[in-house]
Simulated scan of single mutants.
Amino acid sequence: MPIDDPTTATPSDIDVELARLDIENGKAESTLRGLRKRHRSLLEDGMTEYAAELEPRIEQARQTIAECETAARPLEAEFERRGGWTRAWLVLNTGGHVHRTPQCRTCFATTQFAWLTQLSGHDETEIVDLAGKAACTECYPSAPVEVRNRPSRIKTPEQLAREAEKAERAKAKAAKAITAPDGTPLRTTKYGQIDTEFTARRNYADALSYARHLARVNVAYHRDSIAEHHEDARLILAALAAKHGRTEDDLRAELAPKVESRWNREYSNWR
């Protein structure tokens, strides 16, 4: 995201934004090259009207490139003002090395890199320790032999982003989940295994409402089923109380209106 004041930003924050701008700039340049080529071809074929239709898109690509260059300028200036900071790049091929600079003599013009912006400004010893055997011996000649024998723990920003997204999804799923107080699956007699809090709350209201209906119909005949529905409600209430660190009485009072609503909506008119 854009940085308002580069002088207070961390090296990592600055390089993350520079990397984003570099990618956006590269896409715009690729688009511009393609559009210009198509534009020339149309003009050579005498299709001036079609060529003219491309000109707004060409101008937009030029503007994007200019905007990226303008946005990057103060960030690069801040890098220079601070006398630079450590940076690291990972070669994107199997067994690719981590380099201090993409200008390392062991790399080529066609070499593809992932800029490890999360390591920008970090101590070089830390970078080498994380890189392990992936540390380039040209870029980090002083890396201890024992470190170079360790597996690499380096991850690209894209991998870290995917892991963060996965963790967020897991967190969201956990927030919706429900288990028995001991952490085992919440299993009930009438509603089977309940996995989400939403379902637990709905089934709690249904269990008590339906038990009430059965009692009104014939309490003696439905005694066992009534007991099972009440037991399911008790198990659900205990699970909800454990999840939220609340008392069962507190939750029972909170859920009472939902139970009554369920009764009125589903069962009050049954005979």
Rank of each mutant, 00 (worst) to 15 (best):
D13P: 00
R212G: 08
D13Y: 02
R33H: 12
R187N: 15
T94Y: 12
A71C: 04
S209Y: 03
I154N: 00
T184V: 05
A134Y: 00
E44N: 12
A135W: 01
Q118H: 15
T137C: 07
G83S: 08
I127A: 01
N269H: 14
S30L: 13
E231Y: 09
D4W: 06
R169L: 13
L255D: 03
R148C: 03
E158G: 13
E260M: 13
A172Y: 03
R100Q: 14
K27M: 12
A19M: 12
P257C: 06
D22C: 08
A114R: 02
V98L: 01
S209R: 04
T110I: 07
R87I: 04
D206I: 09
A135Y: 00
E163D: 15
Y267V: 09
M47R: 15
Q60N: 10
R252L: 09
P144R: 04
D123F: 02
V259C: 08
P157F: 11
R262S: 09
G245Y: 07
T188S: 10
T110R: 12
Y267E: 07
Y267Q: 08
S268Y: 08
D15M: 15
A175C: 00
A51T: 07
G34M: 02
S152K: 01
W85E: 09
D249C: 04
A205T: 11
R162L: 15
L32Y: 09
R169T: 05
V147L: 14
N93T: 15
R271I: 06
F113N: 02
W85I: 05
L116T: 01
F108I: 00
E76F: 12
W89K: 01
R36K: 12
A241G: 02
D224P: 00
R169Y: 06
L54R: 03
K166F: 10
E53Q: 14
E248H: 05
V145F: 11
N149C: 08
A200M: 05
D13K: 11
M47E: 13
E138N: 10
P102K: 13
A66E: 10
R105F: 10
L21V: 08
P2D: 05
R271T: 09
A143W: 03
E126I: 12
G95W: 11
R87H: 09
T196L: 06
T10I: 05
R234A: 11
P74Y: 03
L255C: 04
D22H: 14
G132E: 05
G95M: 06
D206L: 09
R38P: 04
I23G: 09
P257G: 01
D232Y: 03
P2R: 12
R202I: 02
S142Y: 10
A9P: 00
L160M: 13
W115M: 11
D250E: 15
E248R: 14
T8Y: 07
A131W: 00
A61C: 04
A200Q: 04
V98Y: 00
R271K: 12
A9D: 02
A9R: 01
T156R: 06
A170I: 12
C136Q: 02
R212S: 10
R100A: 14
I23N: 11
R148H: 07
E165G: 08
P185W: 01
E53P: 05
